[in-house]
Every structure is written in C-alpha cells, then in structure tokens.
Design a binder for these strands. Structure first.
Length: 504
RNA sequence: GUUCCGGUAACUCAGCUGGAUAGAGUAACGCCCUUCUAAGGCGUAAGUCGUGCGUUCGAAUCGCACCCGGAACACCA
C-alpha cells in the first residue's frame, strides 16, 4: 500500500488509499498494522487518512545505521552498469558558464548511482572534431598567425572572431567546412594544427574539471570515436539513403537524421552515432545517460531512435537524455558579460571552496530541467538556503566534536524530544530523497533534504548547550546525534560533489 | 506553422503518478549573543497556484481551449 511523506503536523508518513477504495476499512488496516509493526511505527486515523508516526526505535535505528556504516540507509536496487556522458567542453574554445551545469549535474548523478551500488563509466566527450575546429584553423591560416606560439588566451579570442566571420562571409564558411572535412581525413597540415590546439586546451580543461571535483574515467572526445565511423555507417547501411547528396537515416520522426554532409564531412551526429556504438561494444552498459542542455533534446531523440533501429545498442539498453535548462541572468536572458560576451569559467570558479559550494548548491536547489537565473552574489550570500549555510553548519558540528573529546555512542530513545526527533526524521527523509532522485534523475530533493537536516540541527544547537550538559547519558546522546548528523551531511555533500571544510 | 518546456508570495524557487491548513529561502518588520563559530536561532506579514471551461467526493496537480515567456524543428553542436 503506497505511503508518502506527510506534511501534516506531527505525522511522518500518510496513506490515503482508503479514500479511493471503498473496500478498504482504514481502521482495520491501521489496527492490523499496529499489531504487526508496533516497534516500527504507530498508525492512527484522522479524516480517513492513515497516518504513521515513526517509533523512537525506528528513528534511532536509522542513526545507528549511519554511525555504523558511515552512509545513509538507502533502498536496495538491482545493480546496473551505467554509462555517463557529461561535461562536453570544447577544444579551442574557452570553458564558460554554460559548461558548468553539465559538469556538476552529471558528476552528482553519477555519484548518486554509485551510492546505490551501480557501476558507472564516465566520459567527458570533448567537442573536438566539428566545424568549430575548421573555423579556428581556417582563421589561423588566413591571418598567418604563429601556430607554434599560440596560447589558450589567443584561442579564447580567435574562436569568437572566427565564428562571427563564418556568419558574415560565405567564402570563409566554405573554407572552414572544407578544412573540417580535410581534417577529418587526417590531412596535413590541418591534423598537425589540430593536435597542437587540442593539447593546449586539454591542460586547461582538465584543471577546470578537477576544480569542480569531476572525475571522468575517460577524457575522450568526438575525435576518439572517428575510427568507428566507417564501421557504424556500414552497420546502418540497410536503413540509410542519400538525400540531396547527404547521407540520412529515417528515425521515425518528422525529420531524418543527417549522418554525413554533402561534402563527405562528419557532423556531431556522426560522432555521436559512432560513440554510442563503440561504447556499447566496449562496455555493454545497461543504460546510457547523457547530460546536455535542453536544446539538444531533439538531437538525442534522433540519436536514440537511430541507435535502436540500427541495433547499435542492445534491445533492452536504456537510453536517457537529461536536458538541463540554460543559465540566465537576472533579466532571464542567456548569461552574458556586460559587453555581450560569454561569462568565462574563471569568472565564476576561482577555486575558493566556499564559493564553489555556493555555486553548486544554488544549481542543485533548482530543478535540473528548468532554466535558472544565476546570480553569483545571491548564490554566495552568507545567509539562507545556500551552500555556505551547509558548510557552516558542518563546521559548527565539527567544532563541538573536536572539543568534546572521546565519548560513548549512545542513542537513548527515551531522550528524544521535539528538536531531536526532527533531526532523526530529517535523516530518514534525506535517505528517502535519494530514492526520489534516482527515479526522477533530479537532485533538488537531495539538496533540500540536506538543507532540512542542517536546519534541524541548527535549531537543536541553538536550544541547548551540548558541551555543558552535565547529565552524562544526555551528553552522549547529544554528541552521538552530532556525529550522526555530521556523517549524514558529509555523505550528502559528497554525493553532490561539494567539498566541505573544517573551519571557516 | 508543428512539437517540446515553463508561468505558484515583491524576488528566486519547491510541491505536479489528485488528497488534509499550497511550502522554503531572500527582501520587509519584530525578538534573541557575559554562554559550544550570530555565516546562527525564533517570530510576524506576504498567494485570484497565467486565464476559462471540464472530470472528481476532492484539482496547483488530470483533460480541453486560450494568453504570455523560452526552445527545437536537414548538412551547427
């Protein structure tokens, strides 16, 4: 019988099945529940709802589990192997604020799956093989720029300039397209220049992802999968045909998917098809999860349909795209600098742990799929529902524990009062939020759960002096709670890939 | 034009496989530091849940229509 968290005062969980089914008598069910599960929870009826109040034993059991196992009591699931594709930084293009969400959402989801015991494989899948490379190379050659001495800063200026030129000059666009196609055939000098550009960018990209706590198993890119292109196109041959010179495949949507351009050049789609084929072959994952911005939703519909039609993945392989909304400014417009340029990664991510926690938490607290208004000042504000608050709460707990010295773990259920009860239920609800997160592939439930636990602790903390408590049993009870909350908060922050500190 | 996503307090957002009194944070206004980190705690005030019909014992939640905002829709990624 389905049970859900209740918002009703003094009730932990509720069941309203008896309101829907006349054959069920709420009182009978509650009575039976109470008979069989007396030490777990108490059921009672109000307004035809069956309400459940968790027993003190259930509350302390959860805390004991955390203290013993150093993790939250999560529901058991059948372990799967899941392939994560997130990150997606571009070579020869500075990382900017738009790259932030894929990285932090992807990393947190990956960790969430690992918390549940799933095996994961992750690939950053760099954008290193498309037209953007041809644009930059064409620009370098046309302007006779010193390619050996080029720096990342130069690239940051070259790409926007080349991109602009592409829109203004058809001649330049054609040149860049031609160079892209030649590069894809590994022709010199283009391939050599490409290697140089990739090397310069990669150092910076790795550094940035490390700052964000992103841990990719592979730093592959579109280029890494090109060697599978011929093979995958051959496999798809029965389903493809030529249209207007381009190689296309009908995927059951109103628009076919283009696999190869008229000039023989490959596109993003080509790389993606090759990549999913190669990954399925090498890792045989039960599931693929791609995390990109929502504008690519249609592309992934095409890709997944193509992969199924062409049997590039197993029949039962689950293919998931998580589309996230764009980061907008206070006026709801795509985030730009005052001059109209993109906000650079380094403007937002400085490496300061507290600021980083704030930026990440501000993202998690919002629904992944929606656009969200990014306000650095607000995110890093010292008050309210922020990453700073969580870190601060943790610091205060740590301070108490270090001053307390040794103590015996003792959770005497008789000592539970309103404040401590709130802490215990918050812990249980946090564990519940993990299941919701896993099922919905969102993270705001966990972020909220962590906040609620921290808030419950802050209330408890404000109402008593833990270290001055003279009753030994009570002191142990309080300190044990501190330790359990600390462990739960740290576990939660680790899932979200937020680094915490000891002092601030 | 077709399709998708969004519209909830002044602001930023939860809640959406229908359920009890629609929740947080911010901003506003009060109160609480000789006391474990006040980056904190407690409280007050703030809502035609975009609009209109419909389904239901019951709708922010489901259906239909409409209005606003954003996005995607063949050689970009």
């Amino acid at each position: 019988m389905p049970v859900s968290v209740s918002e009703f005062d003094g009730v932990d969980f509720q069941c309203n099945e008896c309101l829907k089914r006349f054959d069920l008598d709420a009182q009978t069910i509650a009575d039976r529940f109470n008979k069989d599960n007396a030490d777990f929870a108490k059921a009672f009826i109000k307004n035809k709802f069956i309400n459940f109040i968790l027993s003190n034993k259930t509350l302390t059991d959860a805390a004991h589990f955390i203290l013993r196992e150093k993790k939250l009591p999560l529901a058991a699931v059948k372990p799967q192997k899941v392939f994560f594709d997130y990150g997606g930084a571009n070579i020869a293009k500075a990382m900017h604020i738009g790259h932030l969400r894929s990285a932090i959402i992807g990393e947190a989801l990956k960790r969430l799956f690992e918390d549940f015991g799933h095996t994961t494989v992750s690939d950053v899948y760099l954008g290193d093989w498309g037209l953007q490379m041809g644009l930059v190379i064409a620009y370098l050659l046309e302007n006779k720029l010193d390619i050996d001495g080029i720096t990342l800063n130069d690239l940051n200026e070259i790409y926007p300039a080349a991109s602009k030129l592409k829109d203004e000059s058809e001649r330049f666009y054609n040149l860049a397209s031609d160079i892209t196609a030649r590069l894809q055939k590994l022709e010199q000098p283009y391939y050599g220049i490409w290697e140089r550009l990739r090397k310069i960018s990669l150092t910076d990209i790795r550094k940035n992802y490390e700052l964000l706590n992103c841990t990719f198993d592979y730093y592959n890119g579109e280029s890494s999968y090109q060697k599978y292109t011929a093979e995958v196109l051959e496999k798809l041959r029965p389903y493809t045909n030529l249209s207007d010179g381009a190689l296309i495949i009908e995927v059951g949507l109103n628009v076919p998917m283009i696999l190869q351009k008229r000039n023989g050049g490959n596109l993003y789609a080509t790389s993606d098809v090759a990549a999913i084929y190669a990954r399925a072959g090498e890792f045989t994952p039960d599931r693929f999860i791609y995390i990109t911005d929502s504008r690519q939703a249609f592309h992934f519909k095409q890709l997944f349909s193509c992969a199924k039609i062409g049997k590039l993945v197993g029949k039962d392989t689950e293919l998931t795209h998580i589309p996230y909304g764009s980061i907008n400014d206070k006026d709801g417009r795509p985030f730009k600098t005052r001059e109209g340029g993109t906000i650079k990664f380094s403007d937002v991510i400085t490496g300061d742990k507290i600021q980083l926690a704030a930026v990440k938490f501000a993202d998690f607290i919002n629904n992944v799929r929606k656009d969200y208004i990014f306000d650095l000042d607000k995110a890093t504000m010292n008050e309210g529902k922020t990453g700073v608050y969580l870190l601060y709460t943790l610091v205060r707990i740590k301070s108490i524990l270090s001053k307390a010295g040794k103590f015996d773990i003792d959770l005497d259920a008789n000592l539970i009062d309103d404040d401590t009860r709130k802490i215990f239920t918050s812990i249980i609800k946090l564990a519940e939020s993990y299941t919701i997160a896993l099922n919905t592939l969102t993270l705001n439930n966990i972020a909220d759960g962590i906040y609620d636990l921290a808030a419950a602790f802050s209330s408890f903390y404000a109402n008593r002096k833990i270290l001055k408590e003279e009753d030994g049993g009570r002191r142990n009870f309080y300190l044990s709670i501190c330790l359990a909350v600390k462990t739960a908060l740290e576990f939660g922050l680790k899932t979200l890939a937020i680094t915490f500190v000891d002092k601030m």
